[in-house]
Design a protein around this nucleic acid. Sequence first.
RNA 1: GGAGAGGUGGCCGAGCGGCUUAAGGCAGCCGCCUGCUAAGCGGUUGUAGGGUGAUGAGCUCUACCCCGGGUUCGAAUCCCGGCCUCUCCGCCA
Length: 428
Amino acid sequence: MLDLKFIRENAGLIREKHHQRGTEFDIEGLLKLDAERRRLVVDIEQWRREKKSLSQQVHETRTGEGTDDKAPDLVAKSREISTALKESEDRLQAIEQELNNLLLLIPNLPHASVPTGQSPDENVEVRRWGTARTFDFEPRPHWEIGEDLGILDLARAARMAGTRFPLLKGDGALLERALINFMLDLHVREHGYTEVFPPLLVSEESMVGTGQLPKFAPELFKMADDPYYLIPTAEVSVTNIHREEILGPGALPLCYVAFTPCFRREAGSYGKDTRGIIRQHQFNKVELVKFTEPARSYETLEQLTTDAEEVLKRLELPYRVVALCTGDLGFAAAKTYDLEVWFPSQAVYREVSSCSNFEDFQARRAGIRYRPAPGAKVGFVHTLNGSGLAIGRTWAAILENYQQADGSVAIPEVLRVYMRGLTKIEPH
RNA sequence: GGAGAGGUGGCCGAGCGGCUUAAGGCAGCCGCCUGCUAAGCGGUUGUAGGGUGAUGAGCUCUACCCCGGGUUCGAAUCCCGGCCUCUCCGCCA
């Protein structure tokens, strides 16, 4: 959410930024409502002041010794004001509701360093790491490797739940667990994050806080009989840990890492990534979330991205870092780096992590503030998050990059300690 | 799921229709004082939105005692609904 006062004073800038994003928004309509709201507030406050003073006079008249009791007149007048006041208050409430609904639909503004562009084609590669392995055979896609090894069973998963659900077995399930543990340990022990395990179901308010709602309701799984939503990412739970809080001096930065399953309806992605486990309704993810002071959020974004990259480096998976252009930026993000890992079967880089700075966009929605120093004025924090990493896609990338001519899959060195010393997964 | 108790400022805690512009304490900040420290004394300290100033300081108004309605000239205080916490019972991993 953008600051209303900021919108009032920077309408032109907002229009320009929206144009870069490829979104349109009726700023004039919003500002008209805002002007009306302010007029009403002035009226209402005047009524209230008068009413307050009348009540006081009633009291004084009744408790005083005076014989000429003017109370009935005062009461009558006060009643009159109450009626007018109530009417204005109702209107104000309606306008504020409408204003807030509009504000919740305005996307964040891209940071000045974000490349301008309309589509993902205009994203900018920032750096590349590792070299793609050369195969002396035709590299196969991860679903074939997995099915043949008996560690992935999408047919049975589909029968039990439907398409886009995972069923891992044996060493496949073990590999999933190893990845989770490896990533958590790395971020906790070496990068200084605090591990949390948050709720997987959250309230509507939390979804509004991080920006999934109201705009992206079709993307979410919602409980039919209870007011809960399944989280599409741990970002939602973890960022909302501090909702409606004022963090004390010295509390920042806060760094959390969470492993959670994530649930997405993937509405509108029919026909996309139908094979394999790239796009699932349920997948595991290790998520990094940071809360910082505004002045430090961009250096923090670089650090966060580096922390996520370290996972790929240690797994020795070739990847590249891409700066999303204005047109590809998510609704709440001011700047985003995607980490894309190499998939030899299709000879493409695919996203395994998305690291974003939301500046104060989520903090304003969720009411997450901080006090820079004792007695100082409070301000909104900046929030950031990034996958560190998506487990399912990393799992698939390992199968593809580490596949052998005989159909087996070698286990990356760093994972072996998490897999009882296993060096390869073989068919059985 | 059932029964009871309760939700007041950064924290503790009083108030239960107008004398509360929320008592008192703790903590914080600024002074004073005393070789230092401690103690003591005085002052000060919430959030949001308006008005007026220069988008500053200041002055000023309104709202906020979990949230939303209602009663009343007037609500932290009374009534209704909701949420949350605690205790006990039931059920359960």
